Simulated assay, not measured.
Amino acid sequence: MNRLSPLQLFLAAAEAGSFSAAARRLDLGPVQASATIARLERELGVRLFERSTRRLRLTEAGERWLPHARQLVAAWEDGRAALSEGADRPLSGHLRVSLPSDIGRQHLWRWIEEFAATESPVDLRLELRLSDRLADLVQEPVDYSVRYGEPPDSSLIALPLAPDNRRVLCASPAYVARRGCPQTPAELRDHECLRFVLGESLHGRWRFETAQGGASAVEVTGNRVADDGGLVREWALAGLGIAYKSRLDVATDLAAGRLVALLPDWIGEPAPLHWMSVGRHRLTPALRRLAASIQARCAALAAGRQQR
């Protein structure tokens, strides 16, 4: 048992909802695991778990302690990695990343796997969580997040992956044939627009610019709203309406003619893509190489040429 074993066991039990499952994961006996948690509770002076014959759940104190325990374990692991990290050290360990749903499913997971294969990792454990919901890198069990937009928190370190990416208005050829092309942003009010919702925020006010410095914003409506960017793209491909998507999300569809870009004289909203981390210490040379690899692939995708 090392110094972090009580914290690691606490985190495993909180995630598994079971002392026995956590003990098996860490190769401990159930009696030893129970005694370790009891000792941790005595040291902290609080009960961390409510125990019953049927379930195990965190107490209010346990919920408050959870993010701190994660930070302590992560800091220890990062410190050990920093001591042994060399410029040529491959990507290894437990890599937990939150990805946007659409580009994550289409491209990012594959790019990460291909990079890992070239690095020849011995013990890389990859955990990807695909969701458009903004991951809290302190509260949630993820180490990194790839997200569109500027970092919402000044404590986050952001590596640019596609700093010049923007949204593009697009629809399927079938929709255009049926409903026609809008000629100005204002005409979008007469079209079926596929809207995206993030948490409680509905992205229903679409903004555009012109090369001459003009600007326009229009409140759009439609019968379909989704909290998954991939579904919005699928609706557009099915001819169900007009989407306002990151160009990276629809680059392959535009190149193949499955979608067509609308309002070519208007420039879409900025949608920069970043690799985000809490603290610069997490951005090891291997992580920076991974981010640089993804940045190159994003540039190729935006330019209409895919790297394979």
Rank of each mutant, 00 (worst) to 15 (best):
H274Q: 12
L83T: 06
R3C: 02
E77N: 08
E192D: 14
I294T: 04
S172E: 05
A243T: 10
A117D: 11
W76F: 15
L40N: 01
H94T: 12
P6A: 02
A255I: 09
L72I: 14
S201E: 15
R205V: 13
A117N: 09
P141M: 05
S120I: 03
L198T: 10
A33F: 02
L44E: 00
A271C: 11
V220E: 13
A16K: 01
Y144W: 13
A292R: 10
C193I: 14
S145L: 14
P272D: 07
L126P: 02
P185D: 09
A256N: 14
A215M: 13
W206I: 10
L188D: 05
L124D: 03
L287Y: 05
T36F: 01
S101G: 04
E119N: 09
A22G: 05
A236P: 06
E187V: 11
A162L: 06
D88R: 11
P100H: 08
E60H: 11
Q71E: 15
W206M: 13
S20Q: 07
L290Q: 04
R224T: 10
L156Y: 14
D253Q: 12
V97T: 08
D132Y: 08
V73R: 05
L198N: 12
G86A: 13
L7T: 03
P90W: 04
S92K: 10
R224A: 14
S145C: 14
N165S: 15
G17P: 00
E114F: 06
E192S: 11
R224G: 05
L290A: 02
A33N: 03
S154C: 07
T252W: 02
